[in-house]
Design a protein around this nucleic acid. Structure first.
Lengths: 231, 231
DNA sequence: CTGAAACATTGACCTTGATCAATAACGGAT
DNA sequence: ATCCGTTATTGATCAAGGTCAATGTTTCAG
């Protein structure tokens, strides 16, 4: 959701169909090339460098192609998060639960976003969060060890990953800012304005959980609002 | 406040006295050596490397010694944040205001913490935040340009700054987690348990602003709570 | 020492969102 | 088509926190 780059969803429609059939298999080999291309595109776009064949081969060897079914977990509370995921297709959520059974979505991730519990990954400690697939997903994942190795050996990737964590830090700080300063109503509008697709793509329950309110409350907010954005 | 390293406050008491006398001057030269020593200590501790004389000289040339009086601004909303500050002595807050005059503290910074609006710094855009001194402060500041140059030329500093932004990202994510999942009461306890000194050091108004509630509400919460921590 | 400003507490009342419950509406799976 | 689980809406009631106001308390500059 932090992605500021355009992504042509049309290109991936055939992929999505294939996905529905083979999601649980080890992956349709025909999907792999376009998945990696999406990754290369983003790296080249962000770093303004051209990746040579050798670089691409290295990336292909360290990024693991992975498919996830809707509702499948990528990370469960208590696990140590040992890989970072690049979303090629689909949507995921990272959420936490308090002792009282309440779930709160920390972040959504869609195409071209990166997702991990960096806290668990960096500290190599048990995660407080869960990550699961909201839709069937195609991911490219890299382990923390491989990431660090790649960072040390490949300047382009080092620069890329630095941008990455900067973007994460900024997005996270903005989330705090909104949560502390805006009303739920303002946050709801902000979310839909920043991510117009979210209104169609995610259920009101999901959006409510992201905003930190009950679904009933969001429903009431929607009722009394000039329907500029709503479909 | 994210610092997990022990810091011997006693070492700085004479410094603080000096500070009160010379805060507005260009700085008492006698304070400078110990200020830089604190920075070197932290870098060596985090990176597990010994800094050579040359390295230290470089750091001394790029880190600017700066004193701030209580209530003095380091950054105002609308400014572009172009430097990162290391807190040698004192305490600061970064806060935002919504349109309705409400102030919310995003983060406190005390001795050995680093502070900046990284969003504004990285994007070179107007900041949504204010930073000011809660107490008289001694800081070492570095410009973004110098920081990037130092990162590229000095591997120790590159590693150090990577740890730095990781710590920031983790702290920020934890703040979201707490805000979404804990009651105000739980957040209050968590804050004081994690930072026992904050209860004495910051006013209830400040703590309320950090927790996102009115001072009256915090006062009431304190009343009905087993006074384990309170002084 | 003293007065002003900031800080803290307490009470009364109001607004917001949570909770509990009922009812549609929808979407996949058989 | 139909059944079942999920999702969305609406109402009634409740609790948490905000707002406004009054009153102490602390701090600190003069």
């Amino acid at each position: 959701m932090a992605s500021k780059l355009n992504f042509n969803v049309q290109n991936l429609q055939p992929m999505e169909n294939a996905l529905l059939i083979t999601a649980a298999s080890s992956g349709n080999p025909s999907l792999r090339p376009s998945a990696y291309e999406l990754l290369f595109d983003q790296i080249e776009e962000v770093t303004n460098l051209r990746l040579c064949k050798t670089d691409k081969a290295i990336f292909q060897s360290v990024f693991h192609f992975k498919m996830l079914r809707k509702r499948q977990y990528l990370l469960q509370q208590g696990d140590i998060c040992n890989s970072l995921a690049f979303v090629v297709q689909g949507a995921l959520r990272m959420f936490s639960t308090n002792g009282r059974g309440h779930e709160a979505i920390i972040i959504f991730a869609v195409e071209r976003d990166w997702l991990a519990d960096r806290e668990s990954m960096i500290n190599q400690g048990a995660s407080d969060y869960n990550i699961d697939a909201i839709e069937d997903c195609v991911l490219l994942t890299i382990t923390y060890q491989a990431l660090e190795a790649l960072r040390n050996s490949n300047p382009a990737f080092a620069a890329f990953f630095r941008c990455q964590i900067k973007a994460f830090a900024i997005a996270t700080q903005q989330r705090i800012h909104r949560a502390l300063n805006l009303t739920i109503e303002e946050q709801y509008h902000d979310l839909l304005e920043t991510n117009p697709a979210f209104g169609q793509r995610f259920s009101q329950n999901m959006l409510a959980s992201y905003l930190g309110v009950q679904p009933e409350t969001l429903s009431r907010i929607r009722k009394f609002i000039p329907d500029k954005i709503q479909a």
